[in-house]
Write a protein that binds this DNA or RNA. Sequence first.
DNA 1: GTCGATCTATATCGGACCAATATAGATACG
DNA 2: CGTATCTATATTGGTCCGATATAGATCGAC
Lengths: 176, 176
Amino acid sequence: MDVRTICLGILTRGDATGYEIKNLFQHDGYQHFVEASFGSIYPALNRLTEEGLVSVREEAQEKRPDRKVYSITPAGRSAFIASLLKPLPEDRHRSPFVFAMLFSDLLPQARVAQLIETYAQEVQVKLAQLNETEARAQTPGEEFARGFGRAIYVAALQFLEEQRGKFETAEPVAAE
Amino acid sequence: MDVRTICLGILTRGDATGYEIKNLFQHDGYQHFVEASFGSIYPALNRLTEEGLVSVREEAQEKRPDRKVYSITPAGRSAFIASLLKPLPEDRHRSPFVFAMLFSDLLPQARVAQLIETYAQEVQVKLAQLNETEARAQTPGEEFARGFGRAIYVAALQFLEEQRGKFETAEPVAAE
DNA sequence: GTCGATCTATATCGGACCAATATAGATACG
DNA sequence: CGTATCTATATTGGTCCGATATAGATCGAC
């Protein structure tokens, strides 16, 4: 799922600037399983404009940089739906935490316990974020995404809870 | 968790060629939460060698390209452990599947059902892979990583099972 | 009341990383 | 006997991220 496709998808829900697209990842609905940086969003929007998949209108603002508001075109909408009909790339879950835990035998116990605590807290924050958005009007898709996130985070927390303690008795090895 | 750190970690478990490091991600222990491509592994090993964090010995083979077997140095081991003592980057879970489901209202029902089925099958394959490795000798870290993966995958499957059907009655919208 | 922080909004650059491709002989299978 | 897969290296094009730059607006703290 490249950034161009992600931008198209977001624009099917309404017009937006590059800045607003970026912020959608931090707030509402799109949390946790989709992301893109400014460094890829702005070039993506330019290319999409060249290709006629989105259109821009520049809204000049007094004493502010111009807003470039992007809208999806009919061609863009078709291209987006077509991309959802093709086989999807697989999920990619990169976890520095799991990687670090693979080497727990090389770390002092205190650090291992801390890794687990810190990670558990992060998961709890994400879970709380998902529950916050609960009240707002949602598409069935957003409902699904929130449920999916909840399911995974709850399971992760439960597992961490089970593991807590198991790494407190293991003998540590040289940490230098 | 950059590729250099990942390579260092793997080399703490024993010497390996770039090729073997890459393959470790597909087989044993490191499955699912860690990955790197040849295009980043080979340059990483070169740089690590320059920096003295790993050493190479070239094993000439008859009628085969030379094997470049990498070993971690004491400096490399220290650097690796130091990187595990610093705060870790957060997990990054990119899911084209969840992204597509966010737009289920734009897709024909059949496609949505297919998305769920296909994804569920992929998760089941991953779960089976984790259970396969069960028999082999494991470090506590590998045990943890396998348990973590299992917990998440089982929860995902359970959620998908609950959702199956919920997307069969939703009215579809134009798919072109 | 003014100073710093945060927000809106654009954009670029270096570097990291991936996917695909190239090379090339070995082995294994049908 | 041919073809696919395996061992093993490496590069290239392109995508993407993180950091940085710019710049005025707003808002809270002191």
